[in-house]
Measured scan of single mutants.
Amino acid sequence: SEIVKHAEEALERGEFVRIEHNGRVIEIRNEEALEELRRWVEK
């Protein structure tokens, strides 16, 4: 997914991403959060 790709690229640069999706906000700061995002987006 485009969202996950964006988050992965930001993590590689040492940045973090805040994503709003279906009214929820998730902050991607590490691999664990990235995995959570993947599960969340796939639903």
Rank of each mutant, 00 (worst) to 15 (best):
S1D: 11
S1Y: 15
S1N: 12
E2Y: 12
E2F: 11
E2K: 08
V4C: 04
V4Y: 09
K5H: 07
K5W: 05
K5P: 02
H6M: 15
H6R: 15
A7W: 04
A7L: 05
A7Y: 03
A7D: 02
E8D: 02
E8F: 11
E9R: 11
E9T: 08
A10D: 01
A10K: 06
A10I: 05
A10H: 07
A10L: 08
A10E: 03
A10Q: 07
L11F: 10
L11G: 01
L11H: 02
L11S: 01
L11P: 01
E12A: 15
E12S: 15
E12V: 10
R13T: 03
R13Q: 05
R13I: 04
R13H: 05
R13G: 03
G14P: 01
G14R: 03
G14I: 01
G14L: 04
E15V: 09
E15Q: 10
E15N: 07
F16R: 05
F16I: 14
F16K: 06
F16D: 03
F16A: 08
F16G: 05
V17F: 12
V17C: 10
V17W: 07
R18H: 08
R18K: 13
R18E: 08
I19L: 08
I19F: 10
E20H: 11
E20P: 05
E20W: 14
E20I: 14
E20K: 09
H21Q: 05
H21T: 07
H21W: 15
H21V: 15
H21M: 15
H21E: 03
N22C: 10
N22T: 04
G23C: 07
G23W: 01
G23Q: 03
G23S: 03
R24G: 05
R24M: 13
R24L: 14
R24K: 13
V25F: 10
V25C: 11
V25Q: 05
I26M: 10
I26N: 01
I26S: 02
I26V: 08
E27G: 02
E27H: 10
E27S: 06
E27F: 13
E27L: 11
E27K: 03
I28N: 00
I28H: 00
I28R: 00
I28L: 04
R29W: 12
R29G: 08
R29F: 13
R29I: 15
N30A: 04
N30K: 02
N30P: 01
E31H: 14
E31D: 09
E31P: 12
E31A: 14
E31G: 09
E31F: 14
E32S: 09
E32P: 03
E32H: 10
E32A: 13
E32Q: 12
E32T: 10
E32M: 10
A33S: 13
A33H: 12
A33M: 13
L34V: 06
L34P: 00
L34E: 01
L34N: 00
E35A: 11
E35F: 05
E35Q: 09
E35T: 07
E35V: 06
E35D: 11
E35P: 00
E36D: 08
L37T: 00
L37C: 05
L37K: 00
L37V: 03
L37S: 00
R38H: 04
R38F: 04
R38E: 02
R38M: 07
R38I: 09
R38W: 04
R38D: 02
R39S: 13
W40I: 07
V41F: 14
V41T: 05
V41Y: 09
V41W: 08
E42N: 10
E42R: 07
E42I: 09
E42A: 12
K43L: 14
K43S: 13
K43A: 14
K43Y: 14
K43E: 14
